[in-house]
Design a protein around this nucleic acid. Structure first.
Length: 548
RNA sequence: GGCGGAGUAGCUCAGUGGUAGAGCAGGGGACUCAUAAGCCCUUGGUCGGUGGUUCGAAUCCGCCCUCCGCUACCA
């Protein structure tokens, strides 16, 4: 029996210093849709998401609260998990950079880079905040009295240098260019690829991968003399410092595939098929990360998708620190989990920044879900009950049904958009079909056909069954196709139509959905529900008060 | 400064040479199966400015204005 195709995809891991905003879980929702689609088409999907938990900042925040860093991140991680549970996110593993196997993975990667001659001791210089450690130049304020840390304006910064380890990124410039050339679509969208190429062509510098002063991190496994930093009692020599940022965070993707504890699993899952990330960390994922992997004798990921940001009206980036964010909990409370997923992914283009607002979400929910699709299902089920005693007729054969003809185009477009990760466009394809189905109702006027049928007109009776059979089928197909986006609503939709829903809550376990998405693929007759409860109750904007 | 992208109806956007489009929002109408939903019609734009190329430009070229992205060590 041949193996099912596998599909390993990841999100960036979220910095566990705060409660998540919608802009943070946005990419997780999008990746979740891709994972569910893969499961439903029969792939063995592995979906990894999680949290990034080491940094001087986190250690400092914990200290300010009088708790250990681990206790601090444990609290924050629970907030992320709760938000993702509410949104029906379905990770196959939720990875934390404080997980023991991740420590082993990061240390092994450092060792491999060392063995390969790609890391060397050097001197790192920079502005040093006594409270936070070294600060990035882009994260400093230049004032009349000198450089200042934005978080500690009163405290003078020091220009310090320290010994730490550097990764020889410069050695990989040619290989990176060759890789970009040989794999034109490995970074998408294309304009992001071009930005990265431009960066590489400027010339790559080595970057530091350890910090001497930061205790809250993964112990650096090698002492400056090249010997192991592990002491006889099993502890790590603090003199060796800790692994800094990218040789910690990025490694999570291979930890999640089994590296280094379960190399059989790793062989199965690596290289990843897709990293879904935000544009702020594109450079690390598309330049540093492949080089780090090559240095360790591993393959680069197959694809990196760089999504945009949620902007508020006026174009400002949505962010926790600006206080202009949407609270995922409030969005779920207003629209339900399915509605929250739908409006977020329909309103925000997956390939670029988009301005959104609470009002735009309310309008989108009401127009698309309550009015167009929810009402279509409701009126269809209601008419089957009223005119046909609840007995669902089979759809016409595709050659005789105008809706079937439209569906073929819709499905093709939907799948193309999904495969291209243009999730918002994929939904637009489906809703174009929904509009057509609503037009069909008004054009055919089943209520008129019903009166004629009751008056004994056989042609009308036949046409009534044909039309309602087609409409039920249209609802089934949309409900099933949209299941990756609305995983809780899908079984309810099919249930109201009297159809089975053969998938587990995470999308696994059923037949290849592409077979079930054919017109008439589930045409056995049955009964619709006698009391169709509205799937997406209309939201009044007054009720949906301003969030957060 | 360099490279790249964008400025189109109230809003979000599509449209790369041939009489300005969609959805939403607003207005009107006919219907009634339905979540006062759906359907039909409709108001609304000198396509950032300017000068060119062309029989003809939102669409090509020049210049200008505005905004945004990348231009290395933040998670």
């Amino acid at each position: 029996m041949p193996d099912r195709p596998r599909f390993y995809l990841t999100t960036a891991i979220a910095y566990a210093n705060n409660a998540p905003g919608l802009h943070t879980v946005y990419e997780v929702i999008g990746a979740d849709v891709i994972a569910r689609w893969r499961r439903m088409i029969g792939d063995e999907a592995r979906f990894l998401t999680g949290t990034d938990e080491h940094s001087v900042n986190i250690a400092q925040s914990a200290e300010a609260q009088g708790i250990t860093p681990k206790a601090f991140v444990d609290q924050k991680v629970e907030l992320f998990r709760a938000a993702e549970d509410e949104l029906l996110i379905s990770p196959d593993r939720f990875i934390r950079t404080t997980d023991p196997d991740h420590y082993r993975a990061a240390q092994e990667m450092v060792r491999r880079a060392y063995d390969n001659g790609d890391i060397y001791p050097g001197t790192y210089e920079g502005w040093y905040c006594p409270n936070e450690g070294f600060k990035a130049p882009s994260d400093l304020l230049e004032t009349a009295s000198g450089m200042q840390c934005p978080n500690h304006p009163g405290i003078p910064l020091q220009w310090l240098s320290e010994r730490n380890w550097f990764f020889r990124l410069s050695a990989y410039q040619d290989r990176l260019l060759a890789h970009y050339d040989a794999n034109p679509d490995w970074v998408q969208p294309e304009y992001r690829r071009n930005e990265m190429l431009g960066f590489i062509r400027q010339g790559l510098e080595d970057f530091s991968i350890s910090r001497a002063g930061a205790a809250w991190g993964i112990p650096f496994p090698i002492a400056e003399n090249g010997e192991t930093a592990r002491r006889e009692d099993g502890s790590w020599d603090p003199e060796a410092g800790t692994i800094y940022v990218w040789y910690d965070a990025l490694i999570n993707y291979i930890t999640g595939a089994g590296f280094p504890d379960d190399m059989a699993a790793f062989e199965r899952w690596w290289p990843a098929d897709l990293h879904v990330i935000g544009k702020d960390i594109a450079r690390f994922h598309t330049i540093a990360w492949p080089a780090m992997l090559w240095s360790a004798g591993l393959e680069a990921p197959r694809h990196v998708w760089v999504h945009g940001w949620l902007l508020v009206q006026g174009g400002e980036r949505m962010s926790k620190s600006r206080g202009n964010f949407l609270d995922p909990h409030a969005v779920v409370a207003a629209f339900g989990a399915d509605g929250a997923r739908y409006v977020t992914l329909r309103e925000v283009a997956f390939d670029k920044d988009t301005e959104v607002s609470w009002d735009s979400f309310v309008r989108r929910y009401n127009a698309d879900l309550a009015n167009d699709f929810g009402n279509l299902v409701n009126r269809t089920v209601s008419m089957v009950n009223r005119y046909l005693d609840g007995e669902r007729p089979a759809p016409r054969v595709a050659e005789e049904s105008p809706l079937a003809e439209g569906w073929a185009d819709t499905l093709r477009g939907y799948r193309e958009r999904l495969d291209g990760y243009l999730l918002h466009d994929a939904l637009a394809e489906l809703w174009e079909f929904v509009r057509g189905a609503n037009r069909t109702v008004d054009a055919e006027q089943p209520w008129t056909l019903n009166k004629q049928a009751k008056a004994g007109e056989a042609d009308a009776a036949r046409r009534l069954r044909d039309v309602l059979g087609d409409l039920v089928e249209a609802c089934r197909l949309v409900g099933l196709a949209v299941a990756p986006f609305m995983p809780a609503a899908a079984p309810r939709i099919l249930g109201q139509l009297g159809h089975d829903y053969p998938y587990a809550p995470d999308g696994n376990g059923g037949p290849d959905v592409r077979e079930l998405l054919g017109w008439g693929a589930a045409n056995a007759e049955g009964r619709v529900t006698s009391t169709p409860e509205p799937l997406f109750p209309r939201v009044e904007s007054e009720v949906a008060a301003t969030p957060a």
